[in-house]
Design a binder for these strands. Sequence first.
DNA 1: GCTCATGTTCCCCT
DNA 2: CAGGGGAACATGAG
Length: 259
Amino acid sequence: VPELPDVEGFKRYLVRYADGRIVTGVKVHDRVLLRNRSPQTLARAVNRRKLVNARRHGKWLLVDAGESTLLFHFGMTGLFKWDDPPHPHDRIVLQFADGALAYRNMRRFGGVWLARGEREIAEVTGPLGPDAMEVGSADLEQMLHARRGGIKAALMDQRMLAGLGNLLVDEILWRSRIHPRRDARKLRPKDTAKVHRVMHDVLVESNRRARVPPLPGWLTGVRDTRDAKCPRCGTRLRKATVAGRTTCWCPRCQRRASA
DNA sequence: GCTCATGTTCCCCT
DNA sequence: CAGGGGAACATGAG
């Protein structure tokens, strides 16, 4: 499920239950999902440490434990569960005096990493652009104008802008009335300003709900229905692979040539 | 059995 | 080098 708003929700969840609490133990049920340390090293690093400073950059969630930082990536099926009955997809569990935080992940994309210092953190995450919630309109325009290729591929590229996934990008482009294959460089300033404004609005509303909400009037509410129609004009939505992902757009609202 | 899935990475082209 | 397509990864759901 996880795109930026989902990870924002996981951050709030972690803060609510585990921030400021002391880790009393670690259970590693799936060694593969503990990506860059042994279970022993993880335990040594976090046991008896307090979790503090939970923060998010794009789709990454970070929290400090002593000198170390835990990094979580949720892939496509990751989530947290506090004090839930054991589940086969619980891969790594942090234990506290009053409960346990399970990192659950069915498909086993993503995982948990440990790093010490900003340099190691950057090695784990790889190059990341500014977080999509933080970037300014002028910076977004500059990035898009410096970019070859289609607008959807650009917005999905975590090295340019961190946090947007497939659903969010389709939602943002649909609301902005911009075709997903439009050349990023050729967007008018008023188009990039629109993308920025829409992106911000979509993220604020999605963050409140810790997901991209499939509400009436949202593309996300109809994209997976049979014979999906544009919520604005009723035209049958198009689907095709763009930038390697299933992409949904309205052929009437989002023209390939300039709007 | 088949297809598809909201993420990332690697390989091969252009 | 930058970007795009496609496959791979792992595990389901329909």
